[in-house]
């Protein structure tokens, strides 16, 4: 397996949000607070290698560290410890509302965000018609993004990041956006990318979708890798654990 992305002993820790200060006033008040701020380990010594062309799903309960892991892979969060080696160009599509400046038009945002995705302005110009066509937004391209609906926003964002032909695509729970027609269209495009050899890492709570799309699943819990292997096997173990933890309360 040729590695596309490697994580070596990666840890991400941050202070408990309840005791975190955002103002000088709070910081001064905290000087007299004897409580020690709790440190949360979002990721704790995670090491893994993702091979070229693999389709990897990440599962786990809320707060398990899935999104943090994806953001470390996208070099958005700088880990406190460990290192990341990306052998290929990583393109993240992590959340709605991220990446587009609300005051700027769709066209201006495509140029601006295009540069963050590795596209020169000339290359964006060449692809802009295709981006607008896939997003079905040709007539709204010169409208400020703040006037877009969430569906329009998602369509343009998805169209842009998939048009740049990512070598490694990171997706965080965003495939359920837009209408049903666009959802089908976006999943077809995603499968096209996978067939062309793109590496994909998808975070989702939709286990059936991940089993169908991915050949490998990584199960995270409390910032640690609990299981990593064939999608069907890890999904089975995850479901068994969920069943056990839900058993006593969920039993009729």
């Amino acid at each position: 397996m040729t590695p596309a992305l490697e994580l070596h002993d990666v840890s991400v820790r941050f202070r408990d949000t309840n005791l975190r200060h955002y103002t000088l006033k709070q910081a001064l008040a905290n000087l007299f607070d004897r409580r020690r701020p709790a440190v949360v380990a979002a990721l704790d010594g995670v090491s893994l290698t993702i091979g070229e062309g693999q389709s990897v799903g990440i599962i786990g309960r809320n707060g398990a560290g899935k999104s943090t892991l994806l953001r470390v892979m996208g070099e958005i969060i700088i880990p406190n410890r460990g290192r990341l080696v990306a052998h290929r160009r990583v393109v993240p599509l992590l959340a709605l509302g991220v990446g587009f400046h609300p005051e700027m038009t769709g066209r201006e945002n495509c140029y601006l965000v295009g540069t963050l995705l590795g596209f020169s302005p000339a290359r964006t110009t060449a692809r802009l018609a295709g981006i607008a066509e896939f997003a079905e937004m040709a007539e709204f391209l010169d409208t400020p993004v703040k006037n877009y609906s969430s569906g329009m926003y998602a369509r343009l964002a998805f169209s842009l990041v998939t048009e740049v032909e990512p070598e490694i695509l990171l997706l965080d729970e965003i495939l359920g956006v837009g209408d049903e027609f666009f959802q089908r269209k976006s999943q077809e495009r995603l499968q096209q990318l996978m067939r062309r050899g793109a590496t994909t890492v998808i975070v989702s709570h939709n286990l059936d979708y991940l089993v169908a799309q991915c050949d490998r699943l990584i199960w995270l819990d409390q910032g640690k890798v609990v299981a990593d292997g064939a999608a069907a096997e890890v999904a089975l173990a995850y479901r068994a654990r969920l069943g056990r933890s839900a058993g006593p309360k969920g039993a009729p």
Binding site: G74, E75, I76, V90, P92, L93, L94, A95, G97, V98, G99, F100, H101, P102, V113, L116, L117
Partner: peptide
């Protein structure tokens, strides 16, 4: 800058 830095490496 969160609009950019929460989504992309910049």
């Amino acid at each position: 800058s969160a609009v950019f830095t929460r989504g992309f490496r910049v």
